[in-house]
């Protein structure tokens, strides 16, 4: 494992920790999109189908379990926890996320590395992850007061994508057979979606003002 990959995984983990901190400690999910969280839970469930079939490393298994458990518990908190769910900004979280799922599934059936159940589900999870942040970005745009933890959560999530691209570039040159066109193209699309957010996040940090996205 190279440094970019490890740093990418760690920022991904950090984003989850920041979100859980907000939900668990502050008992608030204000500014967090339930739609995005549900999509992530679906992404991990579809991608980690091989969890108990293919053993890669202890690190890999543990991280997969962490992402599965955290994504489903976040959805549970936002839907069921009696205090947390009251802070959910339902009126602004109106992105029709179900309409993302079907096109991703169709694309996975058409473009995959092999036409088997697991490979189609893997491609589906990659496509869905690329667009899963959209409801969250739309909600941020509609939120007048973006709190620090929410901004940091999205920032770490975006940083993870950037680091994964660097990891692929590194692996492409160091591992002769490392080719994954599907995850590369989807990963670049996913990262580009954060470009706008990054711009405003860095500007707010530089100018020391509160983060606000233009509508």
């Amino acid at each position: 494992m190279n440094a970019f990959r490890l740093a990418g995984d760690m920022t991904h983990l950090l984003s989850v920790v920041v979100l859980l901190l907000k939900i668990h400690t502050i008992k608030s999910c204000a500014g967090i999109s339930l739609k995005t969280q549900e999509l992530y839970a679906l992404v991990f469930a579809a991608r980690y189908l091989d969890l108990f079939i293919h053993f890669i490393s202890l690190y890999n298994t543990v991280m997969k379990l962490v992402f599965l458990a955290s994504s489903f518990s976040i959805v549970w908190y936002m839907r069921r926890h009696k205090i947390v769910r009251r802070t959910y900004d339902k009126d602004h979280d109106t992105f029709r996320h179900h309409f993302l799922v079907l096109p991703c599934l169709a694309l996975a059936l058409l473009i995959n590395e092999r036409f088997t159940f697991r490979e189609v589900m893997w491609a589906f999870s990659i496509y869905l992850e690329a667009v899963a942040i959209l409801p969250q970005l739309v909600l941020l745009q509609r939120t007048r007061n973006i709190d620090n933890l929410t901004g940091q959560y999205v920032f770490f999530l975006g940083a993870y994508r950037v680091l994964y691209i660097l990891n692929w570039i590194y692996r492409y040159f160091t591992e002769p057979h490392f080719v994954h066109w599907i995850s590369w193209v989807a990963g670049i699309v996913q990262t580009l979606l954060y470009a706008d957010f990054f711009y405003y996040y860095i500007m707010s940090w530089k100018n020391n003002v509160k983060l606000e996205l233009p509508a």
Binding site: R5, D9, H12, D50, I56, S57, N60, M63, K64, F67, E113, W122, Y164, N167, R171, E175, H177, F178, V179, H180, S183
Partner: peptide, 10 residues
Amino acid sequence: ECLTAPKDEL
């Protein structure tokens, strides 16, 4: 034959 790498990423 195996052109794609194993899926060892998260």
